[in-house]
Design a protein around this nucleic acid. Structure first.
Lengths: 357, 357
DNA sequence: CTGTTAGCGCCTTCAA
DNA sequence: TTGAAGGCGCTAACAG
């Protein structure tokens, strides 16, 4: 009929064929006479029918073609972090050709109590999605994860932890950090401080209490701290940042360096944090690496730090996004993706050197 | 039945009520006895039913709760531009409370011929969405826009142009640029160059041919060039950048400044481009603003340019995202949103001053 | 090769 | 306040 958008039935009757035939003309999933198909397409053209309504198709197939992606923070903050952006880019590039779209789902407010599931984004409970991706991992008691599992939405987790019934794509950050730590101790450093990514919810900035360290619940921070321990490094001080941003690193840097007996090296758990520490060092009149060595993690290209080039542990960011995309595809194909652990690589720049004795 | 996920019918029969009653128990859209509702919820709990399947609900209501957002470039590039990110953030914050989710749709490859609709992202044709947003405007002959309109998806356009049957949210960039130009001529500048955003498809870097200028098809670039004309400024040279990124600005800056008789002022159509021009000036040993004044557009916070503070025309980025979100809401409510034009503000920094005579 | 039939899961009249 | 019935638009069997 002429009210509302035309449906396949309208097209079929206009073309003088049955609905299922018209369906075939569009899906191509079956034998159909070229002439019939032309007739149908012609009718469609005439009626302004632009193809099957995805809503009907979705209900029928049980698939929406949508992948929900939970980013680890407010958009504003996540997108300021090139790490998130590159992973997302790799993910979208992989999903696109598969006909899958990415639905952005803001994580719960990082400053709020995570147990209150009332704070969850309603999209988690009600948006159509075939698979969900938690780009920045899950926590032990994760209301987000629970909400998804309750709905029966399969989950792919970036960064870990390994959780019953969810695929994981991670990196060898523990080993990478250990390599970095050994490199620094090899240079002669003994007083090494570290600036960490957020440890657990709700987020906090500053020197974590023992209690907070015990609740350490976020995979990247845990792995990288563990890497230090593996290398036999006991940090002289641990400072937690509430986000992986330059200004947090800068604040942490002041906290770490502006003391009577500062460390001779600072390992930050991300490059943006390290960049902030570097800026803090410059502001305090400390020379890098003569007075203090600074190292990061991620392998970002940060030309604005010029002339310094950060010593870092490079992780394959786009590749991680792609690996997550592959895992999503496997889940949709009914397979159980094996855990993936991507390699990282120590990359020495100009910001580390032997300590002054 | 126990195969597959439980449906509302399963829950209803487990609770000993009819499907429609069970539906009421969840939607709350009708009178229902507290006791009955409890019974239904209890049955749902027991069966692991997490609420109505969005696919069924969508088909029934004709709404998916999804807003397709076409970003102006590859994700990787768009997300490196804080302008896009802030607009997107404002949009998501507005849409979230309305129960609407954002589906990312990569634009067509900016380096390819736009008339080939084969290059369009398949999501445009097949993803469920109630409204689409073209964050970075539409072109005259826009395959993306056409694909959406053919499907009957209402469109909200950021930045213009005003197009039949699509809502527009723009800014007063023409007037803002004119203000900026008048400020510079007021300082005594007569030789003013400009670095533009992309003018049309396919993207190119460098000095545009007259033909290309004639095909000028992208609203932000057009408005801002027009603003110069309004102020009576005829640029000594126009250089087009292929994206709003620092390195493009830097390349353009060399092109503009590394000549026998360089301009005394450069107006870039974005802050990132202006930042690049500034870096180029520094590299060429030119002092800013003594040797050359540099101005941008957007009003970004760029602390890494320190000690310089860019003279710029500030636009309300989050507010633009929010305004787009409101327009989306209006469209969904069946209203026709009036065109919106947000104000901008000239903000003088340290990078502009009188020309040396 | 084409038509008939039967739902996918839900919500909303309408009637009881 | 609850139940019965129909249909949103589509596709997959199955017949013919």
């Amino acid at each position: 009929m002429s009210q509302g958008r035309p449906t396949l039935a309208d097209v079929a009757s206009a073309a003088g064929v049955s609905v299922s035939t018209a369906s075939l003309a569009f899906s191509g999933a079956g034998p159909i006479a070229t002439e019939t198909r032309a007739k149908v397409h012609e009718a469609a053209q005439r009626l302004g029918y632009a193809g099957p309504n995805p809503l009907g198709r979705s209900l029928r197939s049980g698939r929406s073609g949508i992948v929900g992606v939970v980013i680890g923070d407010q958009l504003r903050r996540s997108f300021r972090d090139p790490v998130s952006v590159q992973v997302l880019d790799g993910l979208v590039s992989t999903l696109g050709p598969l006909g899958l779209g990415v639905l952005l789902i803001p994580a719960l407010d990082p400053d709020r109590d995570p147990t209150e599931s009332a704070e969850l984004d309603p999209l988690l409970a009600s948006a159509p999605m075939d698979v969900a991706v938690l780009i920045w991992g899950a926590r032990r008691e994760d209301a987000t994860l629970e909400a998804l599992q309750r709905r029966g939405v399969p989950v792919v987790i970036g960064e870990g932890p390994e959780i019953e019934g969810a695929a994981v794509v991670g990196i060898a950050d523990q080993q990478g950090t250990a390599d970095l730590a050994r490199y620094l101790t090899g240079l002669g450093h003994t007083r090494i401080a570290t600036v960490t990514l957020p440890l657990c919810h709700p987020r906090q900035t500053g020197i974590p209490t023992p209690d907070r360290l015990a609740r350490l619940d976020w995979a990247p921070a845990r792995h990288r701290l563990q890497g230090l321990a593996d290398a036999g490094v006991e940090p002289t001080v641990i400072v937690e940042a509430s986000a992986s941003l330059v200004e947090d690193g800068r604040a942490a840097g002041h906290l770490v360096l502006d003391v009577p007996e500062p460390p001779t090296a600072v390992i930050a758990q991300s490059d943006l944090l390290a960049a902030g520490v570097l800026l803090a060092a410059r502001e305090l009149g400390l020379r890098v690496p003569e007075d203090v060595s600074v190292a990061g993690f991620d392998g970002l290209d940060l030309p604005w730090l010029s002339p310094d080039v950060l010593t870092t542990v490079a992780q394959p960011l786009s590749a991680k996004g792609e690996a997550i995309g592959h895992a999503v595809a496997q889940v949709l194909a009914g397979e159980v993706p094996p855990p993936v652990r991507l390699d990282v690589e120590l990359r020495v720049g100009t910001t580390t050197g032997p300590p002054r004795t």
